[in-house]
Design a protein around this nucleic acid. Structure first.
Lengths: 217, 217
DNA sequence: ATAAATTTTTAGACTAGACTAAAAATAGTT
DNA sequence: AACTATTTTTAGTCTAGTCTAAAAATTTAT
């Protein structure tokens, strides 16, 4: 498996959104910042290798074999992110790019040992689940902060759009995984809200609250 | 810098043997398990980029810039080896291949943090020195076990040819970095020797003793 | 239902890096 | 000094992955 092949599989994994949905050539190309013609070429190649189910003009989705391969790459990506944050003290906004490289290191033994070294974590620093060796993920039911009623108390469980700037902003405010959030007020006209987070009162826009996953206590 | 370019620089680094010696196209090709014609192509390219001083039919050596780049790759390789052995409990014979991949990860910050995490080691698991950020290496004076006189007491400081099978053999015998070695007998006809290593008496061939570096106490 | 707009695929070209085979330069031998 | 043997370089081909431009299929709109 080449690096490019791995990146296509991973993109399909993320785009199919656990729904087994068909992904269009353009979607895939956009995600990988490439051209649709390149995506077509690769899809045909991956179809040949039985990693992808692809029908001309209809789109593509991962085969079970392809899904397994993809989940292994995601597993590696997220384990390395944990390593970078927990062991090397990187900020959660700095690790994605480096993990993009580390995820392609080929050594099954390394993955297992790294997993053990990290204490077999189940989520990465952004709250995304880490697939196990077989590709299975434990999905924790989480809701958007935006949907929580006033007075409700929740715990921050994940970040939807792990954009680096957004993550930097959050950590500047002291917002991190596991923070306790209580919704104090919700403005009906712009869906902004006032929250109490780890004791501190904060005013939060709709953009923010729709990108934060919480778990009800 | 592509992966191939990095591998050529690294090969030149190892072949020039700290002597700043000219390396021939064939030597380089052999080291990289490729053909001389491919090496020529790459040398011309690296010369264009001022990373290598190359004159047709004469051979090549690293420029100061190229040497710096190469030493950074070697630094990364050896730091990752320490990580794999010290933190993930790999055997010293298992780490070279994985480090060959990890050495190409691009992130200066990562290297610094890894270095610190590992306690700024000065040698890798085989006793080879780890270059610092500027490419400088601390060379410890070490001699071959084969050259030690009878009765002399030494400490094992490094392995010359870090071949996986050889390393496996050594660790099976309980031979490791830091082991105390006393030469008990030397046979003049085949240069084999009897040694005492960490209390245990061992018979050792010339091949072995010429691949082990020791430091006199 | 047919025309227009969009999406997707094909065809052909490019680059990096490798290869083979042939040509050129260097080194070794007499 | 000249002739052979070896090494090195050049020339041309191949593959993976990308691209652009054009053709084909599909979707949308009238």
């Amino acid at each position: 498996m080449t690096r490019a092949e791995e990146n296509y599989l991973k993109a399909l994994y993320h785009l199919s959104d656990h729904n087994d949905a068909m992904v269009s050539t353009t979607e895939l190309a956009d995600r990988l910042e490439t051209k649709p013609s390149s995506a077509t070429d690769m899809l045909q190649k991956l179809h040949e290798k039985s990693l992808v189910a692809y029908t001309k003009y209809k789109g593509a989705k991962l085969s079970s074999e392809g899904r397994k391969k993809a989940s292994q790459i995601v597993r590696k990506h997220r384990l390395w992110e944990v390593f970078l944050v927990d062991k090397l003290n990187f900020g959660w906004e700095e690790v994605h790019e480096i993990a993009e490289q580390l995820e392609h290191i080929k050594s099954p033994e390394l993955v297992e040992r790294l997993d053990e070294f990290l204490g077999c974590p189940t989520t990465d620093p952004h709250g995304d689940p880490i697939p196990d060796q077989k590709g299975h993920v434990v999905t924790i039911s989480k809701s958007l902060l935006a949907d929580q009623p006033v007075e409700s108390s929740t715990i921050l469980m994940g970040i939807k759009d792990s954009d680096a700037d957004f993550l930097t902003y959050l950590s500047q405010k002291g917002i991190k995984l596991g923070s306790c959030i209580t919704v104090l007020e919700k403005e009906p006209f712009d869906q902004s809200m006032t929250i109490e987070i780890d004791g501190q009162t904060l005013f939060i826009s709709k953009t923010l609250s729709t990108n934060i996953y919480v778990q009800t206590l």
